[in-house]
Design a binder for these strands. Structure first.
Lengths: 346, 346
DNA sequence: ATTTAGCACTCGTCATATGGGAGTGCTAAC
DNA sequence: GTTAGCACTCCCATATGACGAGTGCTAAAT
């Protein structure tokens, strides 16, 4: 009974119930449906259908004399087959346009602005993962001595991302020596992707220069250590306040676990990096999110690219009773915008 | 009547009322005081004193048949004259110690950890302002061409802080040319504080090299633009969830404006940079905070230093009914810790 | 003059009762 | 297969009243 495709009238009713519940946040009853949407069906018929839908797991009742609301399975069916993708409103396009026009070349600022924009348009908390280091192309390395035993390693990649790490060494190294090393490394490594760099190039380099140059050897080690310990890209979060607009969180106790989750980068990271399907879009509903605190939430994410490669994820968190049709369209569109902004052709 | 010093018995009662209210979050009545604290006074006497304290503005009543709670003026008097500074608990010292031992040399990570620690110990939301750029000492500049018209300007300061900015130029500049420029600038500027750099040194340099070198001229302009547009240091925030533990925020509507405020860096910045007194400690109560959304809150901040100069602020936000005696001690102590960590003597 | 006991009064809180309304399932008629 | 009718359930908003904590005031005690 579960999971079977529904006949078209049941689909219609499931769709109407879900649409209405998403809009009103109130359980929807047969009478409401008959009155509000002209389906040519009497409340009694609708009741029968709803009872069937409940039995097969698509709807549920908060309590016996209330209307129906979609179950997780119901939302899933809705999202997969029933939902109407919305087109962006003029106002929204206007906001996006003005955002694109005033984009910052500072990647950090740009990402911050992007996630703020997404939160503003969707009116849900929005989360974004910075671009993966791996897919960037090596551009420049600079070694700056801070004092005798501490060296600042700067790695610049093709899009202006700067990674920096402080490394402690056992013996003093002079500025001049460091400059030499930087220069040699720059010559050798320009144009290599960090991924390759990490996995193979550095090791080749190491054997190649074996014994030829003690300092260079050291420097390669430094670089390797830098890339290795650079654990995770920054996470951007904005619009947390938006979720408080929804009645399901009007009690603090409901909101608290979610707030806790959003303060743990670790958890946000896990949520955003769950596997996605081909086109990069992903919708996770309720328990599909592997996260205790978000059982009553849904997450919509899209991946974004940089020069044709997927490098990061942007997404929205909301109650399961979320405006899927709208948010999917927005997230998808904005992910495409950021991909364009990050892939320089000029 | 207002603001006059209180006689010792009134002080005692104001202190007891405030202490008790901070602990219980319930209005405190004369009977409670007489029973709980052995002051050798009858409830009636205490009532009379409380009536006086209310008349002169130190206490107020939520409603006529409830106990008293401190007014803003009452808290102010408490904080200035009555509060007992607590000493840190062993557990807290242990946490701080383990934090110091595992400190990260990445300044960004270090600040993140610090504010998390503060939030954990105080159980209030904690905010921290990154070190002001101005007081840092110039260490290194690097110009990296990203493509023909975009140049990444990297400025490294004495403590390993990296500022980066992308600058667009009108005509292509080659890597070699940029290297020359970087080198020259590095020679000239090493050891100068950014403050001096911004205000005078760069201008001197500009006139000095006038016409001698077109590129160098350009580069100085770049540097100037970089330092100018680097508007504000990053703000770190953690432990927002803690404030939800307090009954004054059990209704979402009370919490919402605060959440909104904490998502606006602009506002956090203003709160943290209000003027402080000599020793760097500041306690702002209720309306003393120039921020609509925080009228029922207090902020305790301390400044921290880097090589003897005040460079930033760290603080805690809580309800006016805040555990001042405890939080002041912790904030002060942690500010001193971070000052030590940031002022390298090794 | 100050302190205290006593007392009437206020007001918020909590538990209980009550009625209305929205919605259901079931049955019988269409 | 659909629908009208109806009894029934259960939430919710409102009213009610008892209770208790706390007050101010007055008068007596110190």
């Amino acid at each position: 009974m579960k999971g079977r495709a529904l006949d078209s009238r049941k689909e219609l009713i499931l769709k109407v119930v879900t649409d209405d519940y998403i809009e009103s946040a109130e359980p929807v009853g047969s009478r409401t449906i008959a009155r509000k949407y002209n389906l040519g069906l009497s409340p009694a018929t609708i009741r029968n259908e709803m009872a069937d839908l409940e039995e097969s797991g698509y709807l549920k009742q908060p309590h016996v004399s209330a209307g129906r609301i979609p179950s997780q399975q119901g939302y899933r069916y809705y999202v997969d087959s029933l939902m109407e993708l919305q087109t962006l409103a003029d106002e929204e396009l206007r906001m996006i346009k003005s955002y694109i026009e005033s984009w910052s070349k500072e990647i950090d600022t740009l990402l911050q602005q992007t996630v703020k924009l997404l939160a503003q348009i969707t009116r849900y908390p929005s989360i974004m993962l910075g671009p993966k280091l791996q897919s960037a192309v090596f551009k420049h390395i600079q070694l700056v001595p801070l004092n005798d035993y501490n060296i600042l390693v700067l790695v610049v990649t093709s899009t202006g991302v700067v990674e920096n790490k402080i490394i402690t060494v056992d013996f003093p190294v002079s500025q001049v020596e460091l400059d030499q090393i930087s220069n040699q490394l720059n010559r050798k490594l320009r144009g290599v992707t960090l991924e390759n760099l990490k996995s193979s190039v550095l090791n080749e380099l190491k054997t190649e220069i074996e014994a030829r140059n003690g300092f260079l050897q050291q420097a390669v080690n430094l670089l390797q250590r830098t890339l290795e310990t650079k654990e995770r890209t920054r996470i951007y979060l904005d619009g947390v306040i938006n979720i408080l607009e929804h009645p399901e969180f009007k009690e603090v106790e409901k909101f608290k676990p979610l707030m806790g989750m959003m303060e743990e980068e670790e958890k946000l990271y896990r949520i955003l990096t769950a596997p996605t399907n081909a086109n990069g879009l992903r919708i996770s509903i309720g328990e599909e999110i592997q996260e205790e605190a978000a059982q009553d939430c849904s997450v919509i994410t899209a991946t974004y690219e940089m020069g044709g490669r997927v490098v990061g994820t942007i997404g929205v968190l909301g109650p399961t009773r979320m405006d899927y049709g709208h948010v999917v369209a927005v997230v998808d569109f904005i992910a495409k915008c950021i991909s364009k902004l990050l892939s320089p052709e000029s």
